[in-house]
Design a protein around this nucleic acid. Structure first.
Length: 186
DNA sequence: ATAGCGATGTTCT
DNA sequence: GAACATCGCTATA
C-alpha cells in the first residue's frame, strides 16, 4: 500500500493499466514541497488504432514521449494553456498512455491550494491535477519513480465504472474513461 | 445547476 | 485558418 507501483504495472495494454491506476496515489516533491493525489478518474489512449490518441498520426515533437518506454511521463499543453499528464504504457515501441484526469488531494493540501489559487476543486480535472502537483512540460519524458514524480500503489482495487472519454470527438463509442466507485460520478 | 465564452500553443488541413 | 484529451468567469434559473 505504501510501496511504489512496480514497473511491470505499466507494461500491459492501456485499458488494463488505466484500471490498475485507479486508487493509486501520484506524489510530487517539487521545491521541497510534497503533494499527493489519489486517482479516481483516468482515461486510456492507444496508438495508431485509436483515432482519439495523440499518437494516432505518428510521432511529433509534442507526443515523442508516448513512443518511449513504459513508466515515462507524457506531459502536453492542452488548449495552449493547461498542462495534462499521462503515464506511458508499454510494450516498448508501441505508443500508448493513460491520462490522469482527476483525484483527491490526500497530502500537501496547503501547497496544492497555493498553486491552484483556491481551496476547492484542487484536482478534479486533468489541468487542475497537474497544477496542484506542480507538473509542467519540464517533467515531460521523466521516468516515474526515479525523479520528482512517483506513483504509490493502492491498498485494494476500488469498484470501477467505465464511460466514453471526455472532450474528444473521435472514437466516442469506446468506453475508455474509468472512474473509481467513490469518484466524481460514483 | 447549467450554458456560453475567451484564452492560446501545437498540430493538421 | 481551424481543431484541440481544459478551465474559470459570467450570466441566467
Amino acid at each position: 500500500m505504501e510501496d511504489p507501483l512496480p514497473i511491470d504495472a505499466f507494461t500491459s495494454d492501456v485499458v488494463t493499466v488505466a484500471r490498475r491506476l485507479l486508487g493509486c496515489t501520484v506524489r510530487s516533491t517539487i521545491g521541497e514541497r510534497a503533494v499527493s493525489v489519489r486517482l479516481d478518474e483516468v482515461e486510456a489512449y492507444g496508438a495508431g488504432d485509436d483515432p482519439a490518441s495523440h499518437a494516432h498520426r505518428g510521432e511529433t515533437p509534442r507526443n515523442r514521449s508516448m513512443f518511449g518506454a513504459a513508466g515515462l511521463l507524457y506531459v502536453y499543453r492542452s488548449y495552449g494553456i493547461h498542462w495534462c499528464m499521462n503515464v506511458v504504457v508499454g510494450p516498448a515501441g508501441e505508443a500508448g498512455a493513460v491520462l490522469l484526469r482527476g483525484g483527491e488531494v490526500v497530502e500537501g493540501r496547503d501547497v496544492a491550494a497555493d498553486r491552484r489559487g483556491r481551496r476547492d476543486h484542487l484536482a478534479d480535472g486533468p489541468g487542475k491535477l497537474c497544477q496542484a502537483l506542480g507538473v509542467t512540460g519540464a517533467h515531460d519524458g521523466l521516468p516515474i519513480g526515479a525523479g520528482p514524480i512517483t506513483i504509490v500503489d493502492r491498498a485494494s482495487e476500488p469498484s470501477i465504472a467505465s464511460t466514453p472519454r471526455i472532450g474528444i470527438t473521435r472514437a466516442v463509442d469506446r468506453e475508455w474513461r474509468f472512474v473509481a466507485g467513490d469518484g466524481p460520478t460514483g
